Amino acid sequence: MITIIVLTFGLIQTSNAQKQQSGLYLTYNDYVNHKLSYTADKIKKNEFIGSKNVTVVGNGKKTVLAKDQLFGYHDADNKDYRFQDGKAYQIVDTTGFYIYSYDKLVQQGKGPKPTKVYYFSKKSVDAIQPLTPENIAVAFPKNTKFKNMVELASKSDIKLDAYDAQSNEFKIKELYSESLQ
């Protein structure tokens, strides 16, 4: 009986240790170093009501902070997000430049459906903008090869946000890597 209790307690401890800690990053450096400035049991982004604040609930304490004073947050599913203009964009890829996703309501059929839309920024501190050939051309003015490859891909109906499971990267990242060779 004692053995069963000890094993059960050990399994509970192991499962709690495997659960990811969620919380807020105050700065980009905090994000890079994975240093949570505020740990949380629950993070309320308040996006649907258009709030410029985020509410963090942790250790029985509720804290309200302005989103524009934060870099982003880390959730219990081990995903990182960056705040911009009151919205939380998921950081999807950081190699070479940043790719973000955001679930946006898009009219489909009888009503709006959540659709994953992709964005990018050249650097971590640059503005997040839609992932379009025009925006890529403006963001990478000196990389003519990359701009031409992106333009050609878009004319060939190749989606820049397409994910290639075999190479384990987005099409736009493949083009970027090729442009640097």
Rank of each mutant, 00 (worst) to 15 (best):
L11G: 11
F120Y: 07
V138N: 11
G86I: 07
Y38H: 12
Y119W: 06
D126C: 10
G58R: 02
P130G: 03
V32M: 12
G86V: 09
K116T: 15
T14P: 00
H34D: 13
F83C: 08
D68G: 06
I4K: 13
S124T: 12
T8H: 03
L131V: 03
K67C: 08
V92W: 01
S177K: 09
T8K: 05
K67H: 05
N135V: 01
L70R: 02
V92M: 03
I49K: 08
T115Q: 14
L175A: 00
K159D: 06
L152D: 14
V92D: 03
Q13A: 11
I2D: 13
T144M: 11
G111N: 06
T8R: 06
K52V: 13
L70Y: 03
S179I: 00
T55N: 14
T8N: 04
Q21R: 12
N59K: 13
Y28T: 09
E169W: 02
I49A: 06
Y119L: 05
V138W: 10
N46L: 03
N143P: 12
K113E: 14
L70I: 05
S51E: 10
S179E: 00
S121N: 09
Q18G: 07
K45A: 10
Y98H: 09
K122C: 04
I136L: 04
N16S: 10
G60D: 08
R82I: 05
K171C: 00
A17Y: 11
K79A: 06
K142D: 15
L24W: 10
S101F: 04
Q129W: 02
I5L: 11
K145Y: 08
D126R: 04
G109T: 01
V92G: 02
L160W: 00
G109D: 05
D30W: 07
P133H: 12
S124G: 15
